[in-house]
């Protein structure tokens, strides 16, 4: 091997070694790197029930009710659903049919949230297009 090939091999080894190490690390980390649990994951008992955790999903159409600052709504991943109770100000993007991530804990089957974040999806379009899409659906 020439000196240059030697150095090439070393650089390659560095890259491969790092990728291997990080892959193992990420494997070990597994689902702990998830920011929130889906309703199905909670129903399957994967979430730390009894402690605070984050629950994310879509707000079910027609489920949102509010009295003063106290609001209730249902969140789903189209398989399981949970009822959420929250007291406080909701973010701008909070809407029925949109994604939310709530932090809190399960109390008698109801998820009592201390924080509600709105999740935005990857679709960007002007209001007219959104209206047209909605009409086409109906």
């Amino acid at each position: 091997m020439t000196k240059r090939q030697n150095r090439m091999a070393l650089v390659l080894l560095l890259v491969v070694g790092t990728i291997l190490a990080i892959t193992l690390l990420l494997q070990a980390l597994g689902s702990n790197a998830n920011y929130f649990y889906s309703p199905t994951a909670v129903a399957q008992g994967k979430a730390p029930v009894g402690k605070n955790f984050r629950l994310g999903g879509l707000v079910i159409n027609g489920s949102f009710k509010r009295k003063d600052l106290k609001s209730t709504f249902d969140v789903t991943d189209n398989k399981n659903k949970f009822s959420i109770e929250y007291t406080g100000i909701l973010p701008d993007l909070f809407r029925e049919g949109q994604g939310v991530i709530t932090t809190g804990s399960l109390v008698n089957g109801v998820f009592v949230a201390t924080e509600v974040l709105a999740k935005h999806d990857e679709n960007y379009m002007p209001p007219e297009v959104a209206d047209a899409l909605k009409k086409a659906k109906e």
Binding site: Y35, F36, E122
Partner: peptide, 9 residues
């Protein structure tokens, strides 16, 4: 992973 950040548009 599940993230707050949206997916790639």
């Amino acid at each position: 992973w599940n993230s707050l950040h949206q997916g790639s548009s």
